[in-house]
């Protein structure tokens, strides 16, 4: 009897791991689709030839469009989607709340404020000026997350304290952001608003490398904590009785989440909803074992964002609608489907 239970568990784990692999394949297909569409109306065969070599790969205009515009935009969508999916799953776990997202604790508002102020003042770094706005967004968001972590450390690292501190930070930075917009001249305001709409048009190879490295740095320290995160769903009391310090784990994970989120927001602006819905899709597919849940959340986040990117290019032919505007259009049907279809409780 107990042999059967162990065997059933093994089989189920393999089936769930298969779903993660399936998610990877789906992402690859979406990514290819994203590369094939765009305002330049290139022939798919030409795009493929340019990507994989052969054919008239030598055409410089074609080469430039594929390698300097489409590929960076698509890959940025993958990196940002993964970061937001992961950050959302981690946030929902440490706050024990299905409504939590990477932005719940004010990180995006802080990043937006950092960007707004830099655009408003026209300040620019002496070296690598194109990184000025991302860096400002990053610094502001890091400041916000450190204040939340410090406040929680003082008052007890419970979800309630963190949510309250985070909401306070959120409102503070939203006000500051509005203030900087109010003070801005009309053409500067337009720049600010454009930055706030998340858009892949801001993508660049430099941005991709930096964002991807930050994500790796954020995720590596958590590799040894996957089981602890799974156990966190049983409640702090039980986690503590199993020999894990919940407060310490929560702060550590929150700092990782902050790094993931700021890496995503700093380069492309605020992209909502992906971080909220991707973890739910993943939880539906793989359950709560974080060894599978986290990779699946990253894949769902990337898949959703790439799908949104395809849609953003199809809505208005010849133009690219900022992706932040369409993510919810792609994500909401998924969320409704989950709420209605899911056989067991999905939270």
């Amino acid at each position: 009897m107990s042999g059967a239970a162990a065997q059933a568990y093994g089989l189920r784990q393999r089936r769930l791991a298969g779903r993660v692999a399936g998610g990877g394949i789906a992402l690859a297909v979406l990514l290819l689709g994203d590369l094939l569409v765009g305002p330049a109306f290139l022939h798919p065969a030409d795009v493929l030839a340019t990507l994989f070599g052969g054919g008239n790969a030598a055409d410089p205009a074609l080469h430039a469009i594929v390698w300097s515009i489409r590929l960076p935009m698509s890959l940025m969508a993958v990196v940002v989607g993964m970061a937001l999916g992961l950050a959302g799953a981690l946030m929902q776990t440490i706050l024990g709340n299905p409504l939590a997202s990477p932005y719940t604790l004010g990180l995006s508002a802080a990043a937006g404020f950092g960007a707004s102020v830099t655009i408003l003042t026209g300040f620019s770094l002496p070296v690598l000026p194109q990184l000025t706005v991302p860096l400002a967004a990053f610094v502001a968001a890091a400041g916000a997350s450190l204040s939340v972590a410090a406040l929680a450390r003082l008052r007890g690292v419970t979800p309630e304290v963190m949510v309250l501190a985070g909401i306070a930070i959120l409102f503070l930075f939203q006000s500051l952001q509005s203030l900087s917009q109010y003070l801005a001249a009309p053409e500067v305001l337009q720049q600010i608003v454009f930055w706030l709409f998340g858009s892949m048009l801001k993508a660049s190879w430099t941005g991709i490398w930096i964002a991807a490295s930050l994500c790796v740095v954020a995720v590596l320290p958590l590799l040894g904590d996957l089981w602890k995160l799974t156990a966190m769903r049983l409640g702090d009391d039980r986690l503590a009785s199993l020999g894990v310090d919940p407060a310490r784990l929560r702060v550590k994970v929150f700092l990782s989440v902050s790094l993931l989120t700021t890496a995503a927001v700093a380069f492309v602006g605020t992209i909502g909803f992906v971080g909220l819905v991707a973890p739910h899709i993943a939880r539906w597919a793989t359950g709560e074992d974080h060894r599978l849940l986290l990779p699946m959340s990253a894949l769902s986040g990337a898949g959703l964002l790439v799908a949104a990117s395809i849609l953003s290019k199809l809505i208005a032919p010849g133009a690219v609608v900022p992706i932040g505007i369409v993510t919810a259009i792609v994500g909401v049907p998924f969320l409704f489907g989950l709420i209605l279809k899911s056989r067991s409780r999905f939270w």
Binding site: A5, A6, Y9, L223, L226, W227, K228, T230, A231, R233, L234, G235, D237, R238, L239, S241, L242, G243, V244, R283, G287, E288, D289, R291, S344, R345, F346, W347
Partner: peptide, 27 residues
């Protein structure tokens, strides 16, 4: 073993038992 705190989780009974060794489990 604390009193039942009423934690809600979709983890299976077997997975919950496995978590007993949470600090010592590898990938």
């Amino acid at each position: 073993m604390p009193q039942d705190t009423g934690a809600r989780s979709a983890l299976s009974a077997l997975e919950v038992v496995l978590l007993g060794k949470v600090g010592r489990l590898g990938l």
